[in-house]
Design a protein around this nucleic acid. Structure first.
Lengths: 157, 157
DNA sequence: CTGCTACTTCAAGTTCGCTTGAGGTCAAGG
DNA sequence: CCTTGACCTCAAGCGAACTTGAAGTAGCAG
């Protein structure tokens, strides 16, 4: 041959997958246990991964960045083929869901940032009398979850 | 101004703090153990919190949203007074740090979103041959951390 | 004073996402 | 064939962030 085409094997050992994905082998075994990725075995029982697994692992990492648990990632990936690249329909279905998730997360952080900067910017630096940003301290009543950054008692009287 | 200023007690029981902050009492005790908040005790040994503690708790929650650990939150709060509202200098010092943290996080998510949408948008839906988004699979060499969303082997040959 | 609820401590348990270690096997280069 | 390093399983451990439970006490209303 002109060049060696064998350099990129199409079944990866766990060590290779680990090196390429940047995940520890132990983590990959763990992912497999959870059903996030899968492998075939050699006669001797060693794992061999399809190259597409690399994509799945990357997917998992990305999912975690967005704040998904491994369980949610598995669920999301259930819609993607395990052994080949996803096609248009498959991918866009998943991507759309993700995008909204990412956007939500971004929006949340932006609100946070506004409050953070807001109190500095609006001149009420003591944070004590800024009704704009501290509309009472009833926040708890709205249940756990989104809440004012700085909540405090309203001006008594 | 001559009216009763006493309706809102200035020392809160753990139950009151819990109700107002939305955090479980057990979590508040835990925070105290970690040094995130502090209390004085009654003669009988029960905790009483200053109202400013409400703000600290909110601060911790916000810190977590930004992705800080409780330890990091404690560190950040070390620059804020425990028992009164922070003044301009104190607050802006902390807020600035936070803002950059929040902005980083937002930027990270926005990059993710672009990649996500990019692969759908650029027409290379198979994700297999999109050099634009998959510049090789050397990502692992850059160590654990930021990495392409979808990494895969470059076109062999 | 009685009774009740909210509080106290301390130890142990829980979930998530892994890592570590022991003890053993496989696969490939020399 | 032999050695060596990469792999195997299984159980246990870890750190973060809490929660739960048991056993007892505080503080307030009536």
């Amino acid at each position: 041959m002109l060049a060696i085409m064998k350099e990129i094997p199409d079944r990866l050992t766990i060590g290779e997958l680990s090196a390429r994905s940047g995940m520890a082998a132990s983590a990959l075994r763990y992912y497999e246990e959870l059903g996030l990725i899968s492998s075939t075995r050699t006669a001797g029982g060693q794992r061999r991964y399809a190259r597409a697994t690399l994509r799945r692992v990357a997917f998992v990492r990305a999912a975690q960045q967005v704040g998904l648990s491994l369980d949610e990632a598995r669920e999301a990936m259930a819609r993607l083929p395990a052994d080949r690249a996803p096609n248009a329909r498959e991918w866009s279905r998943v991507a759309r869901r993700w995008e909204s998730r990412v956007e939500e997360r971004i929006a949340e952080l932006q609100r946070l940032k506004e409050r953070l900067g807001g109190c500095v910017g609006c001149g009420c630096l003591s944070l004590q009398k800024c009704r704009l940003y501290n509309p009472g301290d009833q926040a708890a009543e709205r249940g756990p979850g989104a809440r004012h950054l700085i909540e405090d008692v309203p001006l008594s009287s």
